[in-house]
Computed example of a mutant assay.
Amino acid sequence: MSRILPDPLRGRGALSLPDNRFEREIRELVSDDGVSPALDNVTRLIPETARTIITENDSPDVGFSRSVNPYRGCEHGCIYCFARPSHATVGYSPGLDFERRILFKKDAPMLLERELSKKGYVVEPLALGINTDAYQPAEDGLGLTRAILGVLDRFNHPVVLITKSSLIERDLDILSSMAARNLVHVHLSLPTLDEALSRHLEPRATTPSRRIESLRRLSSAHVPTGVLIAPVIPGLTCHELESILSRSREAGATSAEYILLRLPLEVRGLFSEWLERHYPDKAQAVLSRLREYHGGKLYDDRFGVRMRGEGMMADLLSKRMEVASRRLAFPGLPSFETGLFHPPHRPSSSRLFPNFIP
């Protein structure tokens, strides 16, 4: 049973609490008059003990093989977030719990330093906060992302950041320093320029216009920055592709990518509920258009297809992206420097043998 609220909670994306698919029994509190008590709208931060912090990735769809995620759940409340189903693995609902129950790995910086210091560690770019945004509101108080960046900075370790938050500007000092050594790429996620749509779609994320300004400030600080149009929602945001690219390029973006809307597991029902509540006149058209990208299905989880779709509509979207990107002349992001990596407490050969000339 999925508990659907009669009225949306203020500042939340999901409209319901889908049952946890891993639970054998579902329990729900009901008052004496048979009515479920109201849900609170308080965000709770829950410490989580982790044994490791670097996650290995073997998906051919993404451009990284390792990631670090200091947070589970995300208060931004993006209704389309592909990470929502992962909240069920820690005992919470992928719906409103994903936005109200934020788990944080308090030892993340220490664990990262320990793992990077292991003998035989081979450096590869780390993607930071890919599952959920590393600059979500909890970061403003906890500072885990900044501490992790501090570790990577000291180790001369390359990192990729994807965010939709202007909070990233807080760390311009570290990012600028790392950029001077070709150790950082930042991607601003921007699915729409429509402020009203964004308030429903991603209620507690930074507004689209402010994200453009963040892109401008990062670029002005010589931090290599690109735009990620994610997700592209057929029938709702897909017409904005060229305008997002144009605004982003003007603000200094040097690269551009896109990802088609993904609806795995519970996200399918959550997104459908959201459409019916906020855009009832477009709901069926949007879902119908999405099926055109997946051979009649709402989602296809095959590698190579899940993030782009296939068929005529997918080819057309790809062509639009190609033509607009070529016209706007995105120069691309610089190559990462991996040769500088060195744990700060482990002496290098040059320190041990100062007169040695390789």
Rank of each mutant, 00 (worst) to 15 (best):
F336C: 04
L96N: 01
E213A: 08
S16Q: 06
F353G: 13
H87E: 13
D301V: 01
S318D: 06
S166F: 09
E115L: 10
P334I: 04
D33Q: 05
H76Y: 01
G120E: 09
A205M: 06
L328E: 01
D7K: 11
H76W: 00
V35M: 09
T192A: 02
P60K: 07
E266Q: 14
Q136R: 06
Y92R: 12
T192P: 00
H222V: 04
P334K: 04
L215H: 05
F356I: 13
N69R: 03
V232H: 08
S255P: 00
V123N: 07
A14H: 09
P60C: 03
N182P: 09
R204V: 02
T52S: 14
G235N: 08
L144G: 09
A108E: 11
F330P: 06
L260A: 10
R24N: 13
L263T: 08
Y279T: 01
D97W: 06
S318K: 03
R320K: 12
E276D: 14
S166W: 09
H200N: 03
N156L: 09
A251R: 04
I162T: 14
T225G: 05
E23K: 13
G34C: 02
I168R: 02
A205V: 08
Y135T: 08
H187E: 07
A83L: 10
A251Y: 04
P47Q: 01
N355G: 04
S209L: 05
E56C: 08
A253F: 08
S165G: 08
L317M: 12
V30E: 12
L144V: 05
P70W: 15
E124L: 06
H345R: 14
E113S: 13
A83W: 11
A180Q: 09
K118I: 09
R101W: 07
R268W: 11
M312W: 07
D61Y: 11
L45N: 08
N182K: 15
K319Y: 11
H342I: 01
L260V: 14
L270K: 04
A205R: 03
I102L: 10
E310D: 06
V62N: 05
T254M: 13
G95H: 03
R308T: 14
P224W: 07
L197M: 03
A251F: 05
H278E: 14
I212M: 05
S255C: 06
M313S: 14
R217H: 06
S318M: 01
D19R: 15
T163E: 04
Y279V: 00
I162Y: 06
R211A: 04
G332F: 05
R3D: 08
R320M: 06
G77H: 04
A205I: 08
T132G: 11
S350G: 04
P109S: 12
N131M: 15
H200G: 00
K119P: 13
W274R: 01
G141W: 08
T43A: 11
Y121R: 12
E276P: 02
C74N: 06
R327S: 10
I4A: 06
Y92A: 10
E310A: 11
R44C: 02
Y293D: 03
P231K: 05
R12I: 02
E23D: 14
R291A: 13
R24A: 13
E115N: 12
E124V: 11
A147P: 15
F353N: 15
G143E: 02
C74R: 09
